[in-house]
C-alpha cells in the first residue's frame, strides 16, 4: 500500500511538471499546444541518440532539453504567429488545430527516422529503503529532480520580478502592458520554459521506465487532463492535479488493472470539466 502510494507520488510529481508546461502556455496566450507531448518525445530521442553517439548522460539530457525548448520557441514564432491575431475561443480553437498538425508532423518524422528508438536512463545506484519501502534509485532521483524543479518554478513565479510579470500577463494582459510588460517577450520565455519542462519530464520518466517513440500523444493527453483538472492556466492547480491523478493512477492500476485506470482518469477529467469548468483549483496563476 505504502509502496503504491509512493509510486503514485513519484508519478504525480512528474504529471504535475508535465501539466505545468502545458498550462502556462495556455494561461499566457490561450494556446492549447497539442504538440507538447511530441516535442517532449523529441527531447527523449535527442538524449537517446546523443548518448549512443558517446555523449555522457548529463550533457545528453541537457542537449535534449534545449532541443525541446528550441522547437517550442520555433513553434511560437512560426506556426502560431497568425493565431495571436485571433481572440478568445477562436484563438484556442485555431491553436489546437494547428498544433495537432504539428504533432502529426513530429510524430510522423520520428516514426519514419527513429522507428525503434526508446529512451532509458539507467540510474545504477542501489535501491534505498524509506519507511520500510524499497525505492528504486531511479524513482528517487526522478522525484528529487521533479521536486527541485517544481520548487524552483514556484520560487520563480512567486518571488522574481520576471515570474510576477508572467503571472501578470496571465491575469490581465492589458494591465500587464500598461505596467511596461512586453507580452511577446514573456510569451517567448514561457514557450522556452514549456519545452524545458517537457524535456525534464521525459528525462525523469526515462529513469523509471523507457520512453518509447510513440508516447507523444499519450503525454499530450496526460498533460491535458492534468491541466483541465487543475484548472486551465493554473500553475498550482496543475501540480495538485498531477499529484492526485498520479496517485489515482498508481492505486487503480495496482488494484483494478490498467485499462480501467485510464478510463477512470478520463472520466475524472470529463467530470471535472462538466461539474467545475474552472478546474478543481479554479484560480489562476
Amino acid at each position: 500500500m505504502t509502496a503504491v502510494i509512493f509510486d503514485g507520488l513519484v508519478l504525480g510529481l512528474q504529471f504535475g511538471l508535465l501539466g505545468v508546461g502545458l498550462t502556462v502556455v495556455y494561461g499566457m496566450g490561450g494556446i492549447l499546444n497539442l504538440a507538447y507531448g511530441s516535442i517532449a518525445v523529441v527531447a527523449a530521442v535527442v538524449m537517446s541518440v546523443s548518448m549512443r553517439a558517446g555523449l555522457q548522460a548529463g550533457p545528453a539530457v541537457v542537449l535534449g532539453i534545449l532541443t525541446a525548448a528550441g522547437i517550442s520557441l520555433t513553434l511560437n514564432s512560426t506556426v502560431l504567429k497568425p493565431v495571436y491575431r485571433r481572440r478568445g475561443e477562436d484563438r484556442v480553437l485555431l491553436s489546437l488545430l494547428l498544433t495537432i498538425g504539428v504533432a502529426f508532423i513530429i510524430d510522423g518524422l520520428l516514426v519514419w527516422r527513429f522507428p525503434i528508438e526508446a529512451l532509458g536512463l539507467n540510474v545504477g545506484w542501489e535501491p534505498v529503503s524509506i519507511i520500510g519501502v524499497r525505492m528504486r534509485a531511479g524513482s528517487l532521483l526522478a522525484s528529487a529532480i521533479t521536486l527541485l524543479v517544481g520548487g524552483s518554478l514556484i520560487f520563480f513565479f512567486r518571488a522574481t520580478t520576471t515570474g510576477k510579470a508572467v503571472r501578470s500577463v496571465i491575469q490581465d494582459e492589458v494591465g500587464a502592458r500598461l505596467c511596461g510588460v512586453n507580452p511577446a517577450a514573456v510569451r517567448t520565455l514561457i514557450f522556452a520554459l514549456s519545452g524545458v519542462l517537457g524535456g525534464i519530464f521525459v528525462a525523469t520518466q526515462a529513469m523509471t521506465s523507457p520512453v518509447p517513440i510513440s508516447a507523444g500523444f499519450e503525454f499530450t493527453i496526460t498533460a491535458l487532463l492534468v491541466t483541465v483538472v487543475g484548472g486551465l492556466g493554473s500553475i498550482r492547480g496543475a501540480f495538485l492535479a498531477g499529484l492526485i491523478l498520479g496517485i489515482v493512477n498508481a492505486m487503480s492500476s495496482f488494484y483494478i488493472g490498467s485499462y480501467i485506470t485510464t478510463i477512470i482518469l478520463l472520466a475524472a477529467a470529463a467530470l471535472t470539466i462538466v461539474l467545475r469548468p474552472s478546474g478543481l483549483f479554479g484560480e489562476r496563476a
Binding site: L32, I221, L224, V228, Y259, A269, A270, V274
Partner: peptide, 29 residues
Amino acid sequence: IAVRRSLGIIFTGIVTLTFSLAFDNLLLG
C-alpha cells in the same frame, strides 16, 4: 451536457475527446 453546463467549443472538444479515448480503452480492455 455541453449546453446545460455551457461548456463552449474548447471544453466540448475536450470532453468528447476524453470519451473517444475512454471508448478506445474500453474496446482494448
